[in-house]
Amino acid sequence: MSKNNAAARTEVDPVLQQNLDYQAPGRTVGIVVMIGLIAFTAAFMTYQSTRLDGTSKQSDMPDGLSQSSERFDAAHFSLPRDERWGFVAIPAGEFTMGSNPLRDRMAYENERWSSTQRQGRVDLPTFFIGRYEVTNAQFAAYLKETNGSMLAQFTERLAMDSQSTAVLEQPVTGITLPQMLGYARWLDAQLRLSAETPTELRELLDADGRVVLPNEAEWEKAARSEDGRTFPWGMQPSESYANFGGSALMPVGSIDCNTCSYGLADMAGNAWELTRSPLQDYPFSLDQAPEALLSLDSLWVMRGGSFQDGMNNVRTAVRGAVDPSVRNATIGFRVAISTLP
């Protein structure tokens, strides 16, 4: 050390040597500063690490998003306040699927059952389907538990879209099919875990049922009932029962439609509803092996039309399709509890 000091002294600027009372910071000060910087870095990075962990899993939800309303209960995953938490039972039985152009002049070619048959009959077991489309508040509850960083983006987007709290009860849109399936999977787990889950729902879940997006047949049966309606409210076009041909989403169930099939809301218009069915030509089959999927294009069927569409696209038999990565402001979904694969 003494040699070091001697060497250091020889390097001192001659001007500085005139100022013998000038005390330059010594090595100790320098090393303390350096250790301080390293310690600061370590502490700061530890803080960043906990922040990253926090936002990647759970996250605080803005108060507005977790508030209950007259129709939805934040304590029950923001599901509707009714005895079955917004799920409606669709009884087992056959229904007519596809369109008959003789009765429905607006029918598209892809609604035809086969080359020899205009419509087909499909027999479905009992299932439940949501009365409403999944809302922003419900989806936010899911993100809060599973993906804090996406919740932040999601709430930011909602705030940009609208300043009104009504946006919370609008259907969630702008998310992909896998994200919708993620929500359904999460809700499935919550319903199985919750001691308050309505008995009928629990019974179907215990009987190999699961929360999932409806398949095409389930959706169509729920929309047109067993009497084969062209629109959820009946055979005739009407602008009184659905949000279509307009300019914006509305909170789910805003339009009263007592005559609609099974009392479901927004089966026509408001948001397109993605299903768990890949797009393929009819006839619809319930017995397809999972491997059959591999030979199909990656397009998934959506139903019901949106607020932007015209009358022809809000018919119960209309089949739209998008690829699973599409995020569109007109495409949402609703969930079902089904025993079918």
Binding site: P178, L181, S298, W300, S325
Partner: peptide, 15 residues
């Protein structure tokens, strides 16, 4: 993978 249009992955999400 499903968002990248890999059908097998979409099938795996469903079952």
């Amino acid at each position: 993978a499903c968002e990248l249009k890999f059908q097998a992955a979409c099938g795996n999400l469903l079952q």
